[in-house]
Amino acid sequence: MDKEQNRLWTVPFILVLFVNALNGISSYMVNPAMPEFLVSKGIPFALTGLISSLLSWVALAMRPFSGAMSDRFNKKKIMFVSYLATAACMLGYALVQKSAAVIGVRILHGVAFAVSGTISMVFATSFVPEKRIAEGISYIGIASLLGTMIGPQLGSSISQQLGMRNLFLTAGGLCLICLLMIVVIPYQFVEQKGKRAGKKITFSDFFAKELLIYVFLIGLFSFGNGIISYYLINFGEVRGIANIALFFTVYSVAMLIMKPFVGKLQDARGIRVILIPAFLIYAVGMVLLANAYSLTPVLIAAVFKAIGQGNGSPAIQAESVKKLGLERNGVAISTCLIGQDLGNALGPIFASYVVNFSNYGSMFMLYALMLLGGLGIYIGTTRKETQSKRKTILAKEGN
């Protein structure tokens, strides 16, 4: 009986992994094409970063509510509505003509993105046994990785061969497939009972202040994600680097190889052993990218990004869920995603201004310095906690 309760690979879990994978592909098909799409609608290049990041700014405002909803209401219904809204936004991109309408769709997409991003992970963990939560989260992350592996290259091919409109229609079609799969996933919503049912809504339902340092760190990681997702293709065109979209594929393959081992290492040694190398290696990767004029250093930088941001961000999410427990899983995930939204929102703005006044090389070098600064802050703020743990261990060994 205990073995059955701890079984991870159930039909609902497999289906929800497919949903996460398809949703990721849909999103990453669209992101790299957004600056070019905005310019085609008459929006100046200098403003593309600001408008592209509207999705993240709106998501940031909505994210705390998405976490609270995930902890209190029917997760399956919330997920269905959020994916339906995402599909409608993809159709909107394909049909709108005026720049004002584009901005309106982008804002609505931000609302849908906030809710769907949180609920996708929270809903998935509903089918993970408590004793295997870290393992389950790692597989959820792998499913999402398929989006970064397949999406950019697929989106680039569709937009070049079939046009921008068909790119958005295809992305919307993938969202509709997700909706069909969500419908057939068996899920029993259990209403809250006892003390939790009558508990008043407090600030802690929207934001976990005990995770503040992790919000900052995951935001710093995602800052680079916002830069690369939106401007790597343009960087390749400026530098004359063909097939630069392979960066996303190499990044994803590296993550697929490393992720199971990194999860086990974190369980055995703690998050610190993941984060310190992650910051250092990611910074080196950005220096490589700043000086790249051919594909080889770009692909090496992709591997370094996988070791850095790719391993660092999921490690922070897993640690946050462990700290708060499954009962507050929604607010744990949404709090981390607030940091990601901040990074994703600020990254494109930073990139557009730096590139406008300088160049891509300066942009990547400045970000490398930011990563090293973040590492210093992390070490400084966690030093007392580390020293306290060491004293406890030494005291136990002394006994």
Rank of each mutant, 00 (worst) to 15 (best):
F261Q: 10
L217T: 14
I257H: 00
L256A: 12
I241W: 08
G219M: 07
R269V: 12
E237N: 15
Y230H: 14
Y231M: 09
F247P: 10
G240S: 02
L275I: 13
I276W: 04
F235W: 04
N225A: 13
I233N: 14
V253E: 11
F206L: 06
I241N: 06
E237M: 08
G194E: 00
Q266F: 13
Y214Q: 15
Y230P: 03
Y230W: 10
I201R: 08
I244L: 14
F207W: 11
R272A: 04
F221I: 01
F203K: 09
L265D: 06
T249D: 06
I257C: 04
G219L: 03
F248N: 07
G236Q: 02
D267M: 15
S252F: 04
L220R: 07
L212Q: 10
Y230Q: 10
N234S: 12
G219V: 08
N225E: 13
Y214D: 12
I241M: 05
N234K: 11
S252D: 07
G236V: 03
V253K: 05
K200G: 12
F206H: 02
S252Q: 05
F247Y: 15
N243P: 07
N225I: 12
K195E: 13
G270T: 04
I227Y: 07
Y231Q: 03
G219F: 02
L211H: 08
A245S: 14
K209I: 11
A254F: 12
G240L: 05
V250Q: 09
F261E: 00
K264P: 05
A254C: 13
L275D: 02
K200R: 10
A278Q: 03
Q266I: 11
N234D: 08
E210N: 11
V250S: 08
K209F: 14
A268W: 13
I233M: 15
G236K: 05
I244G: 13
A268P: 11
T202A: 09
I227Q: 12
D267R: 13
A245P: 07
S252H: 06
F248Q: 10
K195H: 06
I227C: 05
